[in-house]
Amino acid sequence: MVNRNDSEFVEVWENFHGLVNMASPELRDWLFNTPDGADTYAPEPDIDIHALGLQVLQIKEKRRTDITSTDLDTMREVSDLIRGRLQNAPETDINDDPWRSTLMTLGHDPTRADSPRGPDAEA
Rank of each mutant, 00 (worst) to 15 (best):
W30T: 03
E11P: 00
E26F: 03
R83C: 07
M1C: 07
D120W: 05
R64N: 06
V78E: 01
D36P: 00
A123E: 11
E11W: 09
L86Y: 02
T105K: 05
D120R: 12
G84W: 09
D120A: 15
L52T: 14
E11Y: 10
G84R: 08
R112W: 08
R28W: 10
H50D: 15
L31M: 09
G53C: 08
Q58M: 10
F16E: 03
L31A: 09
T105D: 00
A42G: 07
L103Q: 05
E14A: 13
D114E: 14
Y41S: 10
W13Y: 15
L27I: 07
R76I: 10
M22I: 00
R64W: 03
R83Q: 15
D73M: 06
R100S: 15
F9I: 09
P90W: 05
D71Y: 01
S24Y: 00
L52K: 10
T102D: 05
D73Y: 03
Q55W: 04
G107Q: 00
D93V: 10
N95M: 12
N33P: 00
D71Q: 05
E61R: 14
I67E: 01
R28G: 05
R4I: 15
K62N: 09
L106G: 02
T65P: 00
F16I: 00
D66F: 08
R63M: 10
L81K: 08
E26Y: 04
H17V: 03
H17Q: 06
T65D: 13
L19Y: 13
